[in-house]
Amino acid sequence: MISTFGIYFTTQWASFLAYRVVFFLYSMWAILPPLIYLAVWSTVAGAGGIAGWSKGEFVAYYLTFMVVNHLAGSIEIHTASWEIQQGEISGRLLLPVHPGIRTLASNAGFKTIGMVVVVPSVLLLAVLFRPEFHTTPGMVALGVVATLLAAALQFLIGYTIALLSFWITRADAADQLNMVLLFLLSGQVAPLVLLPDALRIAATVLPYRSMLSFPVELITGQLSGTAAAIGFALQGAWLVVAWFLMRFTWRRGVRRYAAVGG
């Protein structure tokens, strides 16, 4: 399975590089929306800060957010969903490997090669906006682990939504709903601590904090040890739920595909 992932990963790189302009634009998608909120909040914070956050802390938060957003984001609505809609999944189902491995390799390929765009962009923004980090190497390390778990969670949820294409032609409508909730509850509009209680609780109870905000909070040093442990527990719980949800959807979806058309 690892070798299969590896060969798909390699070919996905080649595939992405074949469309360099499109690839560049997609990569910018992880940066541009947070950049807007970086500009908004750093302006609002001004010289005196707001709600205990200085301008530099907002910058640190959003620059971290951009990297985590790129690494954890889901692209399955553009890959797996498309394959099902176009019937290309038939060819994948004929192979003796789970088509999800290719989808995962595509996700990983996009993210690793996309760092070529994301890292220089974030470094340039760091020079321009001057972030203030108050964190420790330990928290950053934990944040990296949380980022990987967030990526896994977003992949599973994104893949599950993409698999809805087995039933509905336009699974992108379901994806849009997920994206709106992610936009509101993942710490993009504002760091979650600044949101009203109801929204913050919703973000924590639903998977959205685990999908994006939690790793950013860790890397920027916002969390205590206990809060970090609770955050990992929530991430783990959502991963288990998302895994079973994906497996259930896959099995039912393939059964339906086999029933209605192929």
Binding site: S90, L93, L94, R255, Y257, A258, A259, G261, G262
Partner: peptide, 11 residues
């Protein structure tokens, strides 16, 4: 349709 059933794409 028959070929797809033989190939396992259709139930």
């Amino acid at each position: 349709t028959t070929l797809k059933m033989l190939a396992g794409l259709l139930h």
